[in-house]
Design a protein around this nucleic acid. Structure first.
Lengths: 224, 224
DNA sequence: AATTGTTTGAAACATACGTTTGAGCCGGAA
DNA sequence: TTCCGGCTCAAACGTATGTTTCAAACAATT
């Protein structure tokens, strides 16, 4: 067994098991069993289970954020000096997501589910880690969204951002289960690429829904 | 301590702790500690932790579904013989939801979060329980949605339903935290009623977004 | 007051977990 | 060959979990 083959085998197994069972429900013994390595290897190479979880996210999130920033660069260059419109921003995001993990021949669903779990399962340390590590890219995305929806008040944009986030995280985090249910019901298979094809127009339309006449707040201010 | 006060105290504590920490992360000792009852009481009254989880859901979901069915009855009577339009259906749902837990003086967020957890955390037994117990009301809601969106294919409707569910569950489940963040940022308070006022147009617009031209599936078929 | 069935209480049970230990293995440098 | 650092391994550690036990307390009925 070559040098640090062990590290990658652990990450592969953990990634898969975390995605399908959650963090607390996945024991180190399951992971090392699946990886075919010794139990102690996790604590030797990663220090703790928490660090393992963070390492799993770092392995796919770091290259993803790099690719995403590059894609944003390209998009903004194309549309300059005008800011990119909403659907373009969303499409760049989902396209980068869908094309990312081909290298590792893994279903995107795994990473989507992990991303969803990051929001859903408490895991305070994970939230802090992601915030510290990837807030730059996240903030840039938020700024693009703001420029793409100038007609919204700050309050409206804030809540609609949450709606988008929810629809995305929630759906993608259970995309495998949902796809299977649909298969049993209608006999139709929906690859993840198609789910996001459905998702983008839904989100764009929701964001641009006619504003509800309410007694609140002036126009456009802070981001989200 | 009156007759089965214990049962209710356990349910109250469990409800709150499950909502804020998840199922696996909440131990029976935390629950009985918070409830001020003996550890063994849970297994005595409920049989197991799994049954406790189901009981927590049953206590709020059963009256909610009854209220919802009644509200649907009224709505369909009003609009007969035409089926109610999409926004009416959504508004009836959210209104019932918002008005429900006044009795117990508990934030709706708790129940929303529980509902979200039911989807997110694996917990196969819970999914089976909810399916067996509440599929009738859920199915009726789906049928109303179908009649309100005849232009959608079955596949599109299925996925857009999930998007709606996600946006709703995700947002409302953290509505307290999100409201506080917004207050700190813009100095604006958003009561839950107003959140759903923002949510309904978002969902309705998303549901009715122009269909994406894709190579799949004919038109309207089974429900979802 | 005695008896019955139900509910509580403190303690223990068996199991699973994350983590630590220390002896052993192996490959490259001296 | 000897030595040494990185790595693996089986075993154990301490702790936390869900569940069970059984005696004591209680409420209601006879």
């Amino acid at each position: 067994m070559a040098q640090s083959d062990t590290v990658d085998r652990i990450l592969d197994a953990a990634e898969e098991l975390f995605a399908e069972r959650g963090f607390s429900e996945t024991s180190l013994r399951m992971i090392t069993g699946k990886a075919g390595v010794n139990l102690a290897a996790v604590n030797y190479h990663f220090g703790s289970k928490k660090s393992l979880i963070q390492a799993v996210f770092a392995r796919f999130l770091t290259p993803f954020c790099i690719a995403l920033e590059a894609a944003f660069d390209r998009l903004e260059a194309e549309t300059a000096p005008k800011p990119p419109d909403l659907e373009s921003v969303l499409r760049v995001l989902t396209a980068t997501l869908v094309e990312m993990p081909r290298q590792h021949d893994r279903s995107i669903a795994i990473y989507m589910r992990l991303q969803g779990l990051a929001y859903t399962q408490s895991q305070g340390h994970l939230r802090r880690f992601l915030e510290a590590e990837y807030s730059h890219t996240f903030g840039r995305f938020m700024r693009l969204l703001k420029n793409a929806t100038p007609e919204l008040s700050a309050v409206e944009r804030y809540w609609r951002n949450q709606f988008m986030l929810g629809a995305t995280a929630f759906t993608l985090s259970s995309s495998d289960a949902l796809t299977e249910i649909l298969w049993n019901k209608l006999g139709v298979e929906t690859p993840n690429e198609e789910i996001v094809d459905q998702l983008v127009p839904f989100l764009a339309a929701g964001m641009q829904a006619h504003t509800v006449a309410h007694g609140n707040t002036g126009n456009s201010d802070s981001g989200a």
